[in-house]
């Protein structure tokens, strides 16, 4: 499924290219036309960026839903994505202003993004000890998200035109700006986060029984929680650096994965949710650039249009239990 959508993503675009030429170029059979090669390379990068972002968000969503025992947890809803972009905005403004960082220094941006995500996650964890219901947690997350977005807007408005332009790539939540130079550096960190995430399947299954029962089964509760927040922050930050805050993939992917696999075992759901997230992100990207070509819509608009109703349905369905 992911592979098919990957291919179709490379095939579809505002410049119409013959299918067989694209395929031949992709598989290295016939690399002739310079124009063709350039366009295809652009699309491959873009699609790769979409896949990585989607996988990250899917994995992070699965982990967060399990950690908070809440079907509505998602990096975007809990404000973690916006925390990441706030940190990126601060880094851009301060860094550019003081001359510490280059405009597109992905390492600095990534570090800032990860710290921002982690800080917001910790705040959400803190709030979740008070707000025990699903709705309470989601409200806390949404408010944190607004707070982050508000501060981000303030910073951007007050900063110079150059910085605003540099930042606009991220806030839109689109894969169109993807370049190897941005994707490549965050890749190892993202992969590290994903590797940790896959190992967290077992402890997260244990934590589903409640902290104390989990502890009696031999789960190292605090360690697992910290690792989960760290891994989720790491991949969410990577996704945000590449594509800006993209909503709802992190929410929808785990649900789709659970429905498809008919299990709640996190050892399977976390990777599956990653695959689903990747597929959803690519589909969203294809949709974003095919609805009104050559206009390129922000992917987050697409995911929001499909994702928001999903939340409403989930809320209505769980209304009796929250």
């Amino acid at each position: 499924m992911l592979f098919v959508s990957f291919l179709s993503s490379v095939l579809v675009g505002s410049v119409r290219l013959p299918t067989e030429h694209v395929l031949m170029h992709l598989f290295g059979l016939n690399r002739d036309s310079a124009l063709l090669g350039a366009v295809v390379d652009l699309r491959v990068v873009r699609t790769a960026a979409a896949v990585l972002t989607g996988v990250s968000l899917g994995v992070a969503g699965a982990m967060l839903q399990s950690l908070f025992r809440n079907p509505l947890a998602d990096p975007f809803i809990l404000g973690i994505s916006s925390g990441s972009s706030l940190a990126i905005a601060i880094t851009l403004v301060l860094g550019l202003g003081l001359g510490f960082v280059q405009t597109y220094d992905p390492y600095a941006l990534y570090t800032a993004g990860a710290l921002g995500a982690a800080a917001t996650s910790l705040l959400v964890v803190f709030f979740s000890t008070f707000a025990k219901t699903s709705v309470g947690l989601v409200l806390a997350g949404v408010m944190l998200g607004y707070l982050n977005a508000g501060i981000t807007t303030l910073i951007i408005t007050l900063s110079e035109v150059e910085t605003v332009r540099a930042f606009s790539f991220w806030t839109l939540g689109t894969f169109s700006a993807a370049k190897w130079s941005v994707v490549e550096p965050v890749l190892p960190l993202m992969l590290a986060g994903l590797a940790v995430a896959f190992l967290l399947g077992k402890p997260l299954n244990g934590l589903a029984f409640g902290d104390e029962a989990a502890s009696s089964m031999g789960v190292w509760v605090r360690g697992s929680r910290v690792a989960t927040v760290a891994a989720a922050s790491s991949v969410v930050a990577a996704a945000t650096v590449v594509a800006g805050p993209i909503g709802f993939i992190g929410l929808a992917a785990p649900h789709v994965a659970r429905l498809a696999a008919r299990t709640v075992d996190n050892r399977f759901i976390i990777p599956l949710s990653g695959l689903t997230g990747g597929t959803l992100a690519v589909l969203a990207d294809i949709t974003a650039r095919s609805i009104m070509p050559p206009l390129d819509l922000p992917s987050t608009a697409i995911t929001s249009i499909f994702g928001a109703p999903l939340i409403l349905v989930l809320l209505l369905r769980s209304g009796r239990t929250v």
């Binding site: 025992r69 029984f209 104390e212 029962a213 009696s216 089964m217 709640v264």
Partner: peptide
């Protein structure tokens, strides 16, 4: 270690945890 401890003593606590899908 919690792992060794869990091999020696097991606990059944009150409440019905939210593991309905398992």
């Amino acid at each position: 270690s919690s792992r060794r401890r869990a091999r020696m003593v097991a606990a059944v606590l009150t409440g019905r945890p939210d593991v309905g899908g398992m």
